[in-house]
Amino acid sequence: MGKKLMLFYLLSFVNFGCAQMDETSINGVSFVASPDSLQQIQIPPIKEIHANYAAIMPFGFIRTLDHPEIIFDTDRQWFGETSAGASQYIELLHKDGIEVMMKPQIWIWRGEFTGNLKMNSEEDWIQLENEYRNFILTYAKLAEATQVKVFCIGTELEQFVMQRPTYWKHLIAEIKKVYSGKLTYAANWDEYKRVPFWDQLDYIGVDAYFPISEAKTPSVEESKAGWKPWKEELKTVSEKFDKPILFTEYGYRSVDFAGKEPWDSNHELPSINFEAQTNLLEGLYQEIWNEPWFAGGFIWKWFIAHGKVGGEKDNQFTPQNKPAQQSVKRAYKN
């Protein structure tokens, strides 16, 4: 009897261990599309920071905030923005043991905020719905064909989602007919609580540009303190829907006041502040990353040409070749 009981506990432990391994944190990079194909030599820098996921982002283009036509998968786009490019990136990443979240995105002319995409007539809404269905199902089918683990059904489309909730529920059902992996939606940090279809998805996706600190150079402790109210809010939403939180995007620029409005991508900001970027990331990792309701995230951004980006003169989001890269590496390793 004792031997049988011991064997039962041993098998239970093994099964529990396997379950824990299946729930490994998603330590991801947001892989920026390039005009060129991905080369094997460009993979080691991703593995060097212990990233186990990459977000691949093919693009569709819209002329204005009230225009319903979506142009995508054309010869005029960069290779990495197309189906062929996404497929090539995925194949090479998979070959090197890096899983993928496919995250098709909309770009509106002059960089208008996609959350404000809103039609002026029922006719235009219907056309937009048909155009978006064609766009997203194209990539859902590609995600299934390439065995992508996670598929993101949209990014920061607040008005589209709020104005047409029935459409989105039907669209998710259509996606599930052609794609069998995990699903999420990338809601903006101030949108995610109002998304009406979390119950149909596997992860609550958040583009996590929460305002954290108004200090010029916040310390790690200030960053952690700034995360505490958002942490409670995220936990509450996760428990409400019984779904894990996934940061579909997160990150900070290497500028002064980087935690005040982390979504600000204004290229005219002149300052360079590596300490602010590093401390804000450290605060996020220490305060959020190991929470049981948190699935992981994808840092914004990671470029293919690692040796030519980031560095001492760059004040944009990428951590590449900056002190922040070591923070990402330590967090992802642990």
Score class of each variant (00 low, 15 high):
145 A>N: 04
145 A>T: 08
148 V>L: 04
148 V>G: 08
149 K>P: 03
149 K>N: 07
151 F>T: 07
152 C>V: 12
155 T>Y: 13
155 T>C: 14
157 L>R: 09
157 L>Q: 03
157 L>W: 00
159 Q>L: 14
160 F>S: 02
161 V>R: 01
163 Q>G: 00
163 Q>N: 13
163 Q>C: 10
164 R>E: 04
164 R>H: 15
164 R>D: 09
165 P>Y: 10
165 P>G: 07
166 T>I: 15
166 T>L: 13
167 Y>E: 10
167 Y>R: 04
167 Y>T: 13
169 K>G: 03
169 K>E: 14
171 L>E: 02
172 I>L: 09
172 I>V: 13
173 A>H: 03
174 E>A: 13
175 I>Y: 04
175 I>L: 10
176 K>R: 14
177 K>Q: 15
178 V>M: 08
178 V>G: 01
178 V>T: 07
178 V>E: 12
179 Y>Q: 12
180 S>E: 10
182 K>L: 14
183 L>K: 04
183 L>Q: 00
183 L>R: 07
184 T>Y: 09
185 Y>M: 05
186 A>T: 06
186 A>P: 08
188 N>P: 09
188 N>R: 12
188 N>Q: 09
189 W>I: 12
189 W>T: 04
191 E>G: 09
191 E>F: 06
192 Y>K: 14
192 Y>R: 06
193 K>D: 12
193 K>T: 10
194 R>A: 12
195 V>R: 04
196 P>L: 14
197 F>V: 08
197 F>A: 10
197 F>E: 05
198 W>H: 10
199 D>T: 01
200 Q>G: 02
200 Q>H: 06
201 L>I: 15
202 D>A: 01
202 D>V: 11
202 D>P: 08
202 D>G: 00
203 Y>Q: 08
203 Y>T: 06
204 I>L: 10
205 G>L: 07
205 G>R: 14
206 V>L: 02
206 V>H: 07
207 D>P: 13
208 A>T: 06
209 Y>S: 06
209 Y>V: 11
209 Y>R: 03
210 F>H: 02
210 F>Q: 00
210 F>R: 02
210 F>S: 01
210 F>W: 08
211 P>G: 12
211 P>F: 12
212 I>L: 15
212 I>P: 03
213 S>L: 15
213 S>D: 11
214 E>M: 06
214 E>Y: 04
214 E>T: 07
215 A>S: 07
216 K>I: 11
216 K>S: 01
217 T>A: 00
218 P>K: 10
218 P>F: 04
218 P>Q: 02
219 S>I: 11
219 S>Q: 01
219 S>P: 12
220 V>E: 11
220 V>A: 01
221 E>K: 13
221 E>G: 03
222 E>T: 08
223 S>K: 11
223 S>L: 12
223 S>I: 14
224 K>G: 06
224 K>R: 09
224 K>V: 05
